[in-house]
Write a protein that binds this DNA or RNA. Sequence first.
DNA 1: GACGACTATCTAAACGGTTAGGAAGGACGC
DNA 2: GCGTCCTTCCTAACCGTTTAGATAGTCGTC
Lengths: 329, 329
Amino acid sequence: MATARDVAVRAGTSTAVVSYVFNNGPRNVSPETREKVLRAAAELNYHPNALARALSHGKTRSIGLIVPDIANRFFGELARALEEAAAARGNILLIGDSGLNLQRERSHVAAFVERRVDSVVMVSIADDPSVAAFADAGIPVVALHPLAARDGVSTISIDYRAAAFAATRHLIEHGYPAIAMFNGPGESAGSRQHREGFDLALSGESDVVASIHNTEISRAHAAQVALDVLARPSRPRAVYCSTDEQAYGVLFACHRLGLRVPDDVAVTGFDGTEHSAYSYPPLTTIRQPIPEIAERVIALLTGDGAGLPVYEIAPFDLVVRESCGHHTN
Amino acid sequence: MATARDVAVRAGTSTAVVSYVFNNGPRNVSPETREKVLRAAAELNYHPNALARALSHGKTRSIGLIVPDIANRFFGELARALEEAAAARGNILLIGDSGLNLQRERSHVAAFVERRVDSVVMVSIADDPSVAAFADAGIPVVALHPLAARDGVSTISIDYRAAAFAATRHLIEHGYPAIAMFNGPGESAGSRQHREGFDLALSGESDVVASIHNTEISRAHAAQVALDVLARPSRPRAVYCSTDEQAYGVLFACHRLGLRVPDDVAVTGFDGTEHSAYSYPPLTTIRQPIPEIAERVIALLTGDGAGLPVYEIAPFDLVVRESCGHHTN
DNA sequence: GACGACTATCTAAACGGTTAGGAAGGACGC
DNA sequence: GCGTCCTTCCTAACCGTTTAGATAGTCGTC
């Protein structure tokens, strides 16, 4: 692998000039010399070593991403959007899949710190995210999920509470007498906000029966729980799910049990990835503006003001499709 | 951010000793000195700079991954498995989403070369992958898709031709008189192999009507094409899809058109991600052994023999579920 | 023709680690 | 008492860049 020194020797100059050419500065290089350098570099197949560069001027142009499950469509769309926004600014994305495991999350945090990522985007399930380690290292972090305490950590996310409220109200307005909630594991601030929105929507609706079920954020586990819950005689007439994945699991259970959706059971999801339009039946859901959030996060982190904490609320949409009992043409 | 020098000063030693302590070698350190170093490091919150380390001994402990679409469940599961295998060996994964765009793919290749990733795992749609650039840079690559010409590039994948054959034969054995193929874009070696397997399975079956439809690997586009194809009076009785995503698009179209699956139209998918068990109806598909492939790739790339090209064929399963017309209990 | 202003380039010191070479000191054998 | 061997540690070169400081050459000016 050719180095700047090799190029310099072949072009009959110094490494400084090679650097000036490849960075367009900070000093001028005469057109002839530039030409010689570029030719030599091409002949040697020279690619500047980004590590050395980073070591020298302190920016790695890399951004860490920590998500609970990269195979989950929501995080997949998020990663895709983040990657694109990062690449557009010459940055690459390092991924860390925590698998909902706090230990793995921590080890990714350590790996990112050692690799000196310029900043980190993180979606943690834990309420106490390992964010402190980044703060100690002076690495800016933006969390895309609600945090229990802000603690100076930047946050960009939709208002989960308001969104849960909107979806639940929508079900209530259909007149369903019994509504179940399939919430996440429940220890996180996110689950808490889902719960708050759900409860708030039901407050004062004394004739609506509510039940809460905590499941993992996976199709498989939600399906398993739903197969139980929906087989009971007292089964709910509608189900609010805190993620689309759980909703798909509930849909699966309905089909398996011979229950029609929405005629026997209405279902709403949450996240609104592209796939929610293609389920059977198409899913009513809360759509998060993933591309906009991703763009905003990366702009923030690669911009100047990456230091100061920011708390932003992104807008959401209630996307009404057939799974909730609405007629769509 | 503390450096080894800071730690050395505080511990009253030299940077060499700090290095010996953190690497357990290559020289001995007395227990007392080691203790002093560790204490000083803890007090200063020292994290060795992986860039400097990499620069010094030439290994970045990072692996690049290039996929067409990280939000696609198949690539998501793949990335997850690769990330886990890589992390288990102290490596991190850099992701590059090419979005089926050759230009973006090339720019990721360049970024990976400059960052001196130790190796690359790549799934390209292009037949001429930008693999040559890695070869020039002396970076080992493993392609997880079929290549037109091997050209010394390592490959690990299932036998697409054989798998396509198996799935198609399965449909034929149901006695369906008209079978459609939803293949990928068609320029790639992968699509070609799907096609070959499909054709081979049908050769000699003169009373079966076959038709070929090329779509993008997306639910949306496959659905759009299927809405057209399945609305025709001469609609196929069964559909072989070259990816699960396309199969989901076909299922969507069936539901939209009021066609029952499998009674009116049978459908098979390809890839066999976990979600294929949860569609309506559950999808008959070819399951690729993603975890095993990922483990094997990473073992290969982080092992010693990362140099020599390897051509491995992984086993696949035909997973029979309801979408193809089989009765499952 | 000496002087300042400017340009193009080179030299060398960082950046933060790793590691070979050598020095200092103690244990041991003779 | 001296050479030998070991252990422990330090010094300094190196990895491949960036960039400030120094230098040399050109030009215009008075």
